[in-house]
Design a protein around this nucleic acid. Structure first.
Lengths: 330, 330
DNA sequence: TTATAAGTTGATAACGTTGTCAATTGAGTC
DNA sequence: GACTCAATTGACAACGTTATCAACTTATAA
């Protein structure tokens, strides 16, 4: 910048004015400076700028996801990116892998780079460690799961209602023995979905058979194995409810291999790509990650822009998509 | 930091020494400083630090993908993240959407934040605009597609060989009229794959019927429509080769809807999740995005660490996965 | 003509940190 | 007791930028 100023024959401050498009610069000086910038191939240093600047904004946000490669996470990510880019804000993304330590490590890395805000799909349950961050002015929005011991904005899915609708759908098709595959119970959404299962069974006066329930099943392969176990029971289920996208895929894989996919009903929570082309198509309770991502980003930027109002808690509804697998009758 | 120094009764520089774990600090002073840091909840400012520091490293890299939500892209992204995080490096990610302007906008945003390096899946073909960046010390590695007018490291897939293997597989199953769906011809990989199609037909002495070729098909819906068109021809193809993951999904959708999925053979380039559960399963030429991401990140960090050797051009092989759709005979 | 205002421009300090180098202390050596 | 040396600590400048405020120029009004 010093060289640009020298070449254009002006002061540092004037170059700064041109770069920041401040009005008080004559056209003649401005064009001289612009010329010098191009001739010298000058690149503005965003970090130095935000260090000195009064608003201290880095125009960068941190996004903590479960796994950037998971379809639900990456749909969230993409929507956040689009909202952010419209404001010239860049996105630092990280995967927690449901590991509390990794969550904290990543968030510490984000905040030490002075991000303007955080969008968090939490893996841990105690976010009091973020209190001081917030006091320091970092905005934050939680997505998919609520914060623990911290009052902050959240954009959630209605997990209980969604699960109840899915399980109810199976009951309406004559099923009483409905197997359940649940993700790690440390995950809030997994707990809520399981509660939905319990409630819907109770509402239909169906006794809960613990043998039919497999909790803490994580990933495609474990779901595949758990499905095989369930179907080997002396009184196997006539239907399955799988409470997460990878579990749905695992269960579906097992059913196909055992050639039971036309006989055992299946409803999954969260949509799966290509679910419509299978035979039968997979009936799902679809979440809406794009809307969640957009709402989360919009809320974050409202906070960054200075909105101090009380915490917002938004619940995005789910949608039952019937494609065949959930309509198999007992 | 000033306050920490005051509370611990030492100078700024000593606090800096403690933070950077420099050896020349007595245990007694160190513990006083550590105590003050905790009492005051001090957060180190990474940006200010790297501004002053002699190595000028920000411990941040920029990753430009086609779309963070595309399965191929997000698998790359995840692998890069894992390599980076092991070094304490954070990842800024962005989606170009195959738009040259957006590519340049994102890369400019990355470099103005002084990233240590770039991993680029390019949308454009002239990267001479990056010359000055590289001269300024930014390392860069290209993935999936080569750089244009710039000598830089690249990690590519063998698109021609992969396509030839896939088309050859169809020919071996008796097909002569093989429809081809290609992505935007501005994308290097789309061009290479099409060349593979031409070459394999020529090698088998099969004339190329332009009616069977649909290029510049982008996204699931366009692929669906193009497939319908091909099958409506008076002399329709008996097999299809779809040269990208979304095109495979679109074609598969159309075949299922027309109930031709058991009669028309299909081989796709790039694997699709759940492709094994369809009836028939989808035969694909699988790429290996995880390996590509890992190799790209490792190469980038070698450059960041000062490796000045000649550009590396790595070609990751593809793998034919037979699942049924490609083995339908004419 | 002078006073006033509006529009430009620049000198300097500061953002939070680390590199350089000099100063101080204490122990060990002869 | 004087000397050397290593270990520890601090003063100050600097990284690339912008905020503040003062100074200068030109136009307008009285």
């Amino acid at each position: 910048m010093r060289e640009v100023a020298a070449l254009a024959g002006v002061s540092l401050k004037t170059v700064s004015r041109v770069i920041n498009a401040e009005p008080a610069v004559s056209d003649e000086v401005r064009s001289r400076v612009v010329g010098a910038i191009q001739r010298l191939d000058y690149r503005h240093d965003h970090a130095a700028s935000s260090l000195r600047r009064s608003d201290r904004k880095t125009s960068t946000i941190g996004v903590l996801l479960e796994d950037v490669a998971n379809p639900f996470s990456s749909a969230l990510h993409r929507e956040i990116e689009d909202v952010a880019l419209r404001r010239g804000v860049l996105v630092l993304a990280g995967s927690s892998d449901e590991d509390e330590a990794r969550e904290q490590q990543l968030i510490a890395a984000f905040t030490s780079r002075r991000v303007d805000g955080l969008i968090i799909v939490p893996a841990s349950h105690d976010h009091s460690y973020l209190l001081s961050e917030r006091r320091a002015g970092t905005s934050m929005v939680f997505v998919d799961r609520p914060p623990g011991f911290l009052d902050a904005d959240s954009i959630l899915t209605d997990n209980q209602a969604g699960t109840r609708q899915g399980v109810g759908h199976l009951i309406a098709h004559g099923h009483h023995r409905i197997g359940y595959l649940g993700d790690l119970m440390t995950i809030t959404t997994a707990t809520e979905r399981y509660q939905g299962y319990e409630q819907e069974l109770a509402a239909a006066r169906i006794g809960l058979d613990p043998q039919l329930v497999r909790l803490n099943v994580h990933g495609i392969d474990k779901a595949d194995a758990a499905t095989v176990e369930l179907l080997k029971l002396t009184e196997p289920p006539s239907a399955l409810f799988t409470s997460q996208n990878l579990l749905t895929i695992g269960a579906s894989r097992a059913l196909h291999r055992l050639d039971l996919h036309h006989r055992i009903a299946l409803v999954g929570f969260d949509d799966v790509l290509l679910g419509d082309l299978l035979e039968p198509g997979i009936t799902v309770i679809a979440q809406d990650p794009s809307t969640m991502g957009r709402k989360a980003a919009e809320q974050l930027f409202r906070r960054i822009d200075g909105d101090q109002s009380a915490s917002v808690h938004l619940v995005v509804p789910t949608r039952l998509i019937t494609r065949g697998s959930g309509e198999i009758r007992r």
